[in-house]
Amino acid sequence: MATRTDVSTRKSNQTQTQERTAEPTPLRPPVDIFEDSDGITLLADLPGVSKDRLSMQVDHDTLMIQGDVQIDMPEGMAAMYADVRSTRYRRSFALSKELATDDIEASIKDGVLQVRIPKRMEARPRKIEVQPY
């Protein structure tokens, strides 16, 4: 009985290690999000991600940001210390209906992604002019 238990635990351990080596947990980039009357601005820190390695998708009302880190590393380098243990960033956000998902604009500079999500025209606050009588 004891042997059988041993085998089963070892098996489950092995699967865990395999999963971990297949893809490490993606990094969750820190973000700043702020809103003004015309839309929402999102800033995300993605150091090491260039324009070509960044992917952004809007599926229904979910905005998904994903980026792969590309840094030049010499051959045969041995890691001495590592705060960053994954080469992929991923984070997603649920958008609300009043946001114009077709007009999202994004740019990346020095590893900072800036996303502008405008509000639909009808959702923007309107100033009502008072006509002279």
Partner: peptide, 26 residues
Amino acid sequence: ARGTYPPVNVGTTPEHIDVYMFAAGL
């Protein structure tokens, strides 16, 4: 402590010591 800004990775080769600081937008 872990979580200190900026995150750092350090690697070594026989010729060099390579320090990578993940500090976007500087």
